[in-house]
Design a protein around this nucleic acid. Structure first.
Length: 415
RNA sequence: GUGAGUGUCGCCUAGCGGUCUAAGGCGCCAGGUUGUGGCCCUGGAGAACGAGGGUUCAAAUCCCUCCACUCACCCCA
């Protein structure tokens, strides 16, 4: 028997209410904030991700689904959503539109990892990008939108963490400080962190080992090394966030896993302890578009994992509205009535009334059972007698009341 | 890549060396008189117990290997 590949899953009808619920919130939210939808292909030239995500990141080093097509092109299933959007922005000359350009997506994301709770090889992300403006007011809007998104989903007990990692002018100086600090403490570091020190020192800050955390707590903070421009940007952002009453907490150890982030980074996490805690995160990437061959173009964005949202919705017991079902079930007895049932079902549907029916001849009892388990509001029953009289029995399933009415009247009764 | 746990009908679970060609609940199907649901009752279909090998007179029950799943680490959404 075939099974879904490791780390992938089927989203069965019983789960769809969650997905539709979230979809709806996303569409409403984006409309509210003026974001338009974009759908990029599921795979891109491998180089796009190598270039933007960072060669030293785990994503590039071990998590990409990369393959060659028959023409010999090296392609990669998208491991994140931002780079494709930026590629599309450049490819279609969206810099000619009024800036910032605001785009959102809901897309499958592929990463080769060992699956566990809230982590899959194929998962879905909702993300949005605001490209073409460096004003901290835009950062505030992006963060506000993320926060409002989770509120609108009815998720509670979340925290909003904020940090600034500086720009390419001031970050090198900070990194030097950081390395200097850690170099004096190499013996106290875990083996992983010793490797990080050489390759990606920022990552030292979010090691979970207690001993490393202690070191990280007293490590130099990026916000203390910001250049005047970055510092002002960060201060204005914090002011805007306070203005908007967003409950953010500055976390000097907040670091993100992709190399392209500059200045603002933020993350939304559940307060409850747990493993894959990040529900969503984002930040600024002011150099990314230029890196891809465009003019220097400041931008920022956010992305959230849908599966993780659903996990939290379930944990918090958030009620989800059920998906609508057909209101009418048609039951019939005998072959003659069957013709009428087939015709009637189609007629009602053409009139915009949802209909389910028993396709093959079961007993009336079985058909009513089916109507009941489908949750039909009404059952229409057609037997031989009804066929001859051109009538129909209309049964209200909640009250168990039924009446015989002329067939031509049925549509009006149901509307 | 590393570590731990689990693997019995579609789902949940019992069985832990012989009474198991495997039991129960949910779900599914059919009946409970003639054309009527949700409750109740009765019956039925459905698993050779993840796969392979071994130990034993005897294995779902013990051992080994493999596979799969789950959780955690790394990292991230």
């Amino acid at each position: 028997m075939y099974r879904a590949p490791r780390g992938t899953s089927d989203i069965l009808p019983q789960e769809q209410a969650y997905w539709r619920y979230i979809d709806k919130k996303i569409v409403d939210l984006c409309q509210l904030y003026g974001y338009e939808r974009i759908d990029a292909p599921a795979f891109e030239d491998t180089g796009l991700f190598l270039r933007t995500v960072g060669e030293e990141t785990d994503i590039v080093e071990k998590q990409m689904y990369t393959f060659k097509d028959r023409g010999g092109n090296k392609l990669t299933l998208r491991p994140e959503g931002t780079a494709p959007v930026c590629r599309a922005y450049l490819e279609h000359g969206l810099h000619n539109l009024p800036q910032p350009v605001k785009l959102y997506y809901i897309a499958s994301i592929f990463r080769y990892e060992r699956p566990q709770a809230g982590r899959y090889r194929q998962h879905y992300q909702f993300g949005y990008e605001a490209i073409g403006d460096d004003d901290p007011a835009l950062d505030a809007e992006v963060i506000d939108m993320a926060w409002q998104f989770f509120l609108s989903l009815n998720l509670h007990h979340l925290s909003l963490q904020l940090n600034s990692t500086g720009c390419k002018k001031c970050r090198p100086r900070y990194l030097t400080e950081l390395k200097d600090y850690y170099s004096d403490h190499t013996q106290e570091l875990c083996s992983d962190c010793r490797a990080r020190l050489k390759r990606n020192p920022l990552r030292l800050l979010d090691c979970k080992k207690p001993s490393c955390q202690q070191l990280a707590n007293s490590a130099p903070k990026s916000i203390d090394y910001l250049c005047p421009q970055c510092d002002e940007h960060f201060n204005r952002l914090k002011r805007y966030l306070s203005l908007l009453d967003l409950p953010f907490a500055v976390n000097p150890r907040l670091v993100r896993g992709l190399d392209y982030y500059t200045r603002t980074v933020f993350e939304v996490q559940p307060e409850a302890e747990g493993a894959q805690s990040a529900l969503g995160g984002g930040g600024r990437y002011d150099d990314l578009i230029e890196e891809l061959g465009g003019k220097p173009t400041p931008a920022l964005g956010f992305a959230a994992g849908i599966e993780r949202i659903i996990l939290n919705l379930k944990q918090q017991g958030v009620p989800i509205p059920p998906l609508p079902q057909p209101q009418v079930f048609i039951a019939y007895i005998g072959d003659q009535a069957r013709d009428g049932a087939v015709k009637l079902a189609s007629a009602l549907r053409r009139a915009g009334i949802g209909v389910s029916e028993a396709i093959s001849g079961k007993s009336l009892k079985a058909q009513l059972r089916q109507a009941n388990s489908l949750g039909a509001r009404y059952t229409v029953i057609i037997g031989e007698q009804e066929v001859t009289n051109n009538t129909v029995i209309l049964r209200d399933m909640t009250t168990a009341q039924q009446k015989t009415i002329p067939l031509p009247q049925l549509e009006r009764e149901l509307q």
